[in-house]
Structure formats: C-alpha cells, structure tokens
Design a protein around this nucleic acid. Structure first.
Lengths: 142, 142
DNA sequence: CAGAATCCCCCCGGATACTG
DNA sequence: CAGTATCCGGGGGGATTCTG
C-alpha cells in the first residue's frame, strides 16, 4: 500500500485537483512562496547555501533550510556536501527539478509581465471598497 | 507615487523575483493553495459559490470567501450578484484570469503527471533518513 | 560556513452562530 | 443561498543561540 503511492480510488483519473488530495498537497507544498523563489535562483546552476540566503531576499536561514530539505525530499533538488574547511554545501536542480522549473518560470513570468495590471485592479478594487463603506456610513447616519 | 505601481529602482528590470518584492508577494498570493484550486475549477465557466464550495474539497466557506475576494481584488475573477430569491452569486474568470489560468494549469499538470516520481523520491528520502538516524543511535550507544 | 535547536509570537484557517 | 462576525487553537516562521 505504501508502494502504491497514488490510490486508484481517490477520484483522480481525470485531472481534477479538487478531488485529488495527493496532487493538491504537492501543489501546495511545491507552490510555496519560498520554494518558487529558490527554484528560480537555482535555474542558473549550483549555488551554495550562503549564496541562496543572500539572493532570496527576506528568507531566514531557518526557512531556507526547511525549504531546501523539502525540495530535496521531493526530488527536485540535489544536495552535495564538500568536506572542506570551512565546509561548503552546494544545491542544484535535479532533472526532475529542471523540468519542474519550466512551469514555475512560466508562472513567475506571467506575474512579472502582468503585475502592473494586477496592481491597477487592486487599486481600483480598494477605492471602490472605500466608496461603498463611505456610502454605508451615510445611510446609517441619514 | 501611488500611480507608479512598480517603482523603477527596486531592482526588477531583469526578471529577478528575489529582488522584486512586488512580484514575490503577488506570486505568494496568487500561488496560494486555494487560489490555484479555485482557478482550476473556474476554467470551465462561471460557477456559483455553493458549487465551488462543493467542488474544492476541504475548503471552508470562510477560506472560499477570502480566496474569492482576493482573486477578485487581483482582477482575475469577476463576481456577479443576482438579486433573486434566494440570492445567487456567480464567479467567473476575467480575461486576465483566463490568461493566468494557463501557467496555473501548466503547474498543476506537471505535478499531476509527476506525482508518482515525487512520491517515490519522498519515500526514498524518508527511508534514507530512517537509516541515518538508526546509525546515529548505534554510534552513541557503541 | 552550514546548519540544528529553542523560544515565542502572530495569524492562518477551522468551527460555529447569526443575517438579508 | 451566500455570505459576515466572532472565537480560538495549531503551526508557520522570525530571532537568537549553539555546534562541527
């Protein structure tokens, strides 16, 4: 049962993520904010821990460690330890990771090339919201 | 300053998400687990709140509401209220949402078609981990 | 340098109850 | 039906300290 990683009766014959807890969970895991950013940074080739920490702005060393471990566990990142002094560790995308990087990059590219539209939509939504609240108050007072 | 939604000096000329907090944040927001699943479900056309709640298995009505609001704010989902009795509300992808659905589907499809490999990698990683821990204990005892 | 471990706070998100 | 409002526990994740 453990060998059959994906049960036949979990409603996942057709591609329906909502009925497929396995895929949903993996999507949530791999689609994680830090994971995406780390994958991005590793596209250019192997990088050391400290490099990643420097380049993935805002990540704590704790989260970087946890993220890399999870990615390693998922088989998309390979961890190589060099027993030098001081020690150094390299992280790189596996073949699986390389192929995974493609949709990730596609997603990132989309957001990048549409962030202006998104921001505009947000601004409009927020001001619209403001107006509605203002009207509400007028009604209550009136 | 508010009109210039994306500052020129935040290091985002080239596509480097790690130096681009705006894109990072949007990626984290839109790449959210529930958002991805909801987007998936809306690809087929407009759906009502209760339909979505039924189909996106495991989501609470609270999270569905919050997710839909956020997606609406980001401009990828349009909300239409029908003042019938009982009232009904329809959600559908905007043009922006339609184009966003493409990379999302690509991501989902990748995970779907690779979930077996991922699961295998996880199993191997876990058993490897187990072995290491076992050795550690032997060393301590020995 | 590359982590592991610990503490601790915040907020995500579920459960429940109430409205139009 | 499609929400909002409130309460609340668990865990995500930061800051700090300690090792090999």
């Amino acid at each position: 049962m453990n060998t059959r990683s994906h049960s036949d009766n979990d409603g996942c014959h057709s591609y329906d993520p909502s009925k497929c807890p396995t895929v949903s969970e993996m999507l949530a895991r791999l689609g994680d904010k830090w994971s995406v950013l780390v994958i991005m940074m590793l596209r250019g080739g192997p990088k050391r821990f400290s490099e990643l920490k420097r380049e993935v702005v805002g990540i704590s060393q704790r989260m970087l460690t946890l993220t890399l471990r999870a990615l390693e566990r998922d088989g998309v990142v390979r961890r190589t330890v060099f027993t030098t002094v001081p020690p150094s560790v390299e992280y790189e995308l596996t073949d699986l990771g390389q192929s995974f990087a493609e949709p990730i990059v596609a997603l990132g590219s989309w957001v990048f090339s549409n962030h202006t539209l998104i921001q505009k939509a947000r601004d409009e939504f927020d001001t619209r919201q403001q107006d509605e609240r203002a009207n509400q108050k007028l009604v209550r007072v009136g």
